[in-house]
Simulated scan of single mutants.
Amino acid sequence: MNAPVTRRSLREQPAVVALGVAAVAAEPRPKRARSGGVVADVLLWIAAIGGVVCMLLVILAFTAHITLIMFSTGSMSPTIPAGSVAVVQRIDAAQIAVGDVVTVDREGELPVTHRVTSVADGATATERVITLRGDANATDDAFPYAVSSVRIVLFSIPGIATMVAGMSNPVILGGLTLAATALVVWAFWPRSPGGSRGRRTSGAT
């Protein structure tokens, strides 16, 4: 049985409805912009870290003669498998010791990176004659190398040579630069206090 409708209930009904509308309006709405802001922050941090790494590599290359080399063959496997990237530092020949893994530059040929098996004095005080052998090879290289300096391997990271080679591609590098620029512009573009551009508040008529 329905309750009887009285004047008092009719007077109270608009107030109840108004309270219900106010409660609905007060409910927090999901902030979609917030999730987009988090993604932008993460991407900006990644870009910043990448930029810092690139700057450090440039500084180390000029100050400490530290550079990167990539291994396309497996002659140093399993110590340094094919597809690895090694961090190398140029040192004087007088510092070479048996057991070091070094890169020797060869005129008209690609550099070779193998392990030192012997060291002998060269024609001058700064020169050394060294023999090399890849860890995967059964014999020394065909001939010794007379060097005044070499690049010694400090450490290597397997499996990233393809990525590093791709980063050196002008097309990929240009695309990454444009993407990073667009990300920075989007992240710092002025927005209205409400978190979006172009939103208008409409009043009731």
Rank of each mutant, 00 (worst) to 15 (best):
D121V: 05
L19V: 12
V116K: 07
A48M: 10
A142T: 14
V88P: 01
L178P: 02
L43A: 14
V147G: 07
L10M: 05
V98G: 04
P190R: 03
L176A: 15
I130D: 02
R128K: 15
M163C: 01
A182Q: 06
G36P: 00
A82R: 15
Q89L: 01
A180T: 15
A61N: 13
C54N: 10
G36Q: 08
L57M: 09
S192Y: 04
S35Q: 07
R29W: 05
P193M: 05
R191G: 10
M70Y: 08
V153Y: 00
A48V: 10
R197L: 10
L110H: 10
N137Y: 07
A165T: 12
Y145V: 00
R199G: 04
S84F: 06
V129C: 04
G198I: 12
L10A: 00
T113D: 01
G83F: 03
P190F: 05
P170R: 10
R29V: 11
V116L: 02
R115W: 11
P4C: 10
G175W: 07
L57C: 08
S192C: 11
G159V: 04
F188Q: 03
R7W: 14
S156T: 04
P78F: 03
T162E: 14
S202Y: 14
E27L: 09
H65Q: 01
P111M: 12
L19A: 15
P30A: 13
R197C: 10
F188E: 02
I160P: 08
A142N: 02
W189R: 03
S9N: 15
V5M: 12
W189C: 07
H65T: 07
L43Y: 07
G122M: 12
I157N: 00
Q13L: 13
G20Y: 00
P158H: 05
A3C: 09
S156G: 02
I49R: 00
I80W: 04
A15P: 00
E27M: 03
A61Q: 11
G36K: 08
S9K: 13
R34T: 04
E107G: 13
V119S: 11
V87D: 03
I172S: 07
L10P: 04
S192F: 08
Q13N: 04
P28W: 08
A120F: 11
G166H: 13
T113Q: 02
R133W: 04
D141E: 09
A165I: 03
R8K: 10
V17G: 01
G175I: 06
V116P: 04
P111K: 10
D92K: 04
P4E: 12
P190A: 05
G74R: 01
I69E: 00
G194D: 11
E107T: 14
V52M: 12
M167E: 09
Y145K: 09
G175R: 01
